[in-house]
């Protein structure tokens, strides 16, 4: 009755709300934890202490190099057809503007295709993308590539509608990528509301002029660490189930939901198992990634360091889509492995989270999944998640302790049972 014991402890027992309260203490103390910042390194040192005090094993930090970008002071003011100060969030790795800013006319488009079609109009302009939100993975391409596509047609800067499912005038940030051989131009996200207003103005023939100022700066790579803790396996200690979340966040809100929730239900999974005096046959390894928001930078270095042991990884798990009431588990692996995971999820009938979906993934675990290791991610209420994602609304208030208890229970049952079963999950 291990599953029932874990569920009872996490959802109804003395461990209930523990992951929420632990997370609140950290993010209230440290705040947001952008890559390269002092607050991220402070959070890592606090977690190193926390995990040792929690009695976990082989607690250690693995050094890595990560990018360091700072947004500085930024503003965008519409000067025509009327004065309107706009809320913006510069995008990660963007360059800044000259001190006096960039003042230019605006070209509003709703797609890359429209931008290509109207390329002659773009030269010397600020391109505003008012792309509709389809889903995150599709629409995020506008945030990531908006500057490059605008620069290719001679634009001076790009302002991109936030990639958000819902907005109450909240800009959302995130990483963007320049391209060799294409001029670098400043790029930022604007609110859904402003993108749509400028689209309406432009369609009426209004001339729109914006003054954009960005103090963004890229610094030399910084030192950081992936944080690791284990419950060492009793029978096959060299074999591993890896459970993870990322400790870094954007420089907005508190980074509570992205990805404090995922990091702390992953810690909670090990705490629950330890509290029950359980020791799985395989090693249960917690990894709190650094610099995930820069593209899995910490995780990639971890993979390079440990890939020689890829055959010993039974399952890699990352929670980076929220810790509200889970819809189920996303899974990537062979049919036979999926059949086994479906049986494991049946153990979560008491909390009514038994569904197994396709496409288990996570920026930090995709390296292992591509190397053939089965992968799992916790599926959540994505509409709610992407309304707060990478915005100042990403705070403890966005989370619910009771729902986080259920997420932690699911995470703990899956990771423990797979780590304790007689055989590793079969590969494709």
């Amino acid at each position: 009755d291990v599953a029932k014991a874990i569920i009872d402890l996490a959802v109804y027992g003395k461990a209930q709300n523990r992951s929420y309260e632990r997370l609140a203490l950290l993010v209230d103390t440290v705040g947001p934890r952008p890559s390269g910042s002092r607050s991220l390194e402070k959070a890592i040192q606090i977690m190193y202490q926390n995990l040792r005090e929690d009695g976990l094993e082989n607690v250690h930090l693995e050094p890595v190099k990560i990018p360091h970008w700072e947004r500085g002071e930024e503003s965008a003011v519409m000067l025509e057809p009327r004065i309107h100060r706009m809320a913006i969030l510069g995008l990660g790795s963007s360059i800044g503007t000259p001190p006096e800013g960039i003042t230019a006319e605006v070209l509003v488009v709703t797609s890359f295709e429209e931008l290509q079609r109207r390329a002659p109009e773009a030269r010397g302009k600020i391109v505003v993308y008012n792309q509709p939100y389809v889903n995150y993975s599709t629409t995020v391409q506008y945030r990531v590539q908006g500057a490059v596509e605008a620069a290719k047609v001679g634009a001076l800067a790009s302002l991109i509608r936030s990639v958000a499912s819902f907005s109450i005038y909240s800009p959302h940030t995130g990483i963007q990528e320049y391209q060799d051989g294409v001029p670098k131009i400043p790029t930022a996200c604007i609110t859904v509301e402003d993108a749509e207003m400028m689209s309406r103005m432009a369609s009426r023939g209004n001339r729109i002029v914006i003054q954009l100022k960005m103090g963004a700066k890229n610094y030399p790579d910084a030192d950081s660490f992936n944080t690791v803790a284990e419950i060492i396996g009793s029978k096959y200690p060299e074999q591993v189930v890896l459970v993870s979340g990322h400790l870094d966040s954007w420089d907005v809100g508190q980074g509570a939901m992205d990805d404090g929730g995922g990091a702390f239900i992953s810690w909670e999974a090990l705490s629950l198992i330890k509290d029950l005096g359980l020791r799985p046959k395989r090693t249960l390894r917690l990894v709190l990634w650094t610099a995930e928001e820069q593209g899995g930078v910490g995780a990639f270095q971890y993979y390079l360091l440990h890939q020689a042991n890829v055959s010993n990884y039974s399952l890699v798990m990352e929670s980076d889509l929220g810790t509200f009431l889970p819809s189920g588990l996303q899974f990537t692996g062979s049919d036979e492995a999926r059949a086994i995971v479906e049986e494991v999820m049946r153990l979560l009938q008491p909390v009514n989270v038994t569904r197994v979906f396709r496409a288990g993934e996570g920026t930090d675990i995709n390296f292992w999944i591509q190397a053939g290791v089965p992968g799992a991610s916790l599926l959540d209420d994505l509409y709610r998640y992407f309304s707060f994602h990478h915005s100042d609304g990403d705070t403890m208030t966005a989370l619910d302790p009771k729902q986080m208890n259920v997420a932690a229970a699911v995470w703990a049952v899956v990771s423990y049972v797979i780590a304790d079963m007689e055989e590793m999950l079969p590969r494709s």
Binding site: D1, A3, D335, A339, M421
Partner: peptide
Amino acid sequence: KPIYKNDISRRTFQEIKEEIASYR
């Protein structure tokens, strides 16, 4: 070996199912 389900022999899969059920 018995006929296969998802490339696991039914006996083996059945065993795994029973093993997992024991964690309930």
